[in-house]
Amino acid sequence: MSGEINIMPDLNEGSLLEAVTGQSPVTSENATGADSIDEQKLVLEVKHVSGGYHTGGPFKRMQKYKEVIHDVDFVVKQREILGLVGESGTGKTTLTRMIFGTVKPEKGEIIHYTKRPQIIFQDPYSSLNPAYNVEWSIEEPLRVFGKYDEAERKERVRRVVKQVGLPEEILTAKPAELSGGQRQRVSIAAALIRRPRFIIADEPVSALDVTIQAQILELIANLRNELDLSFLFISHDLNVVYQLCDRVMVMKRGRIVEQGTIDEVYNHPKEEYTKQLLAAAE
């Protein structure tokens, strides 16, 4: 994430999301929003949202408001991988922060139908705390959540490490001893440990080389199938989005200029901007 916003208030489970969405988020760890998976049901609804951030000073009247997101409107369905493409500086990060509730929308509404989403970052080198070993990093979200005893936590760590295809020996390693792909798997494990229904992946493979990229993409696709997860997959690489996603949105200067299924957008693009992006990707 870029450092464009320095105000990052603490998110206490519930409070801020509630303030943003106007409804209580589901906080139980095992709630799915629905017992059965229905691919028409939603995990997230973003309704005509506009917003940005305030810069300038400690007091309201010294601040300037800069709108970054203009009238963004989309849904994420259960068990869907939704791609979000657009060049850097277009507001993808701000949109992510709005979904997490760390930036409040000025207009519109964001509704979560599941418990708190999880995030996977682009840079696997800075997404793990270098002072601790892998086990600590994966376990920490559960420790913070505070509802599980030690044995239960360790058991879940072991299970999730297996799910992301890492050997158990890796638990005692420090991040500095891991490769980029391994680190990204550890980040994914840490995101999965609270059993979310919805994960935001912010350029998760763009820092990796091509063979490792393919492995991580395969892992994400498998996790979707096995765990019925939904993903918002942010990327600037149209080829990666084509391989992985079900639907795709194209973002330009804070607006969603085009959205549709992969076939619609890639084979019959309507917008000039989309055509340019596709031409550039070939």
Partner: peptide
């Protein structure tokens, strides 16, 4: 303050005290 793993910790709901002392 803005390292990814600290942002992650905030998003997972860790309190400021915990982030400062433990993370």
């Amino acid at each position: 303050r803005n390292a990814n793993y600290i942002i992650s910790a905030r998003l997972m709901g860790a309190g400021s005290g915990r982030i400062m002392m433990i993370h």
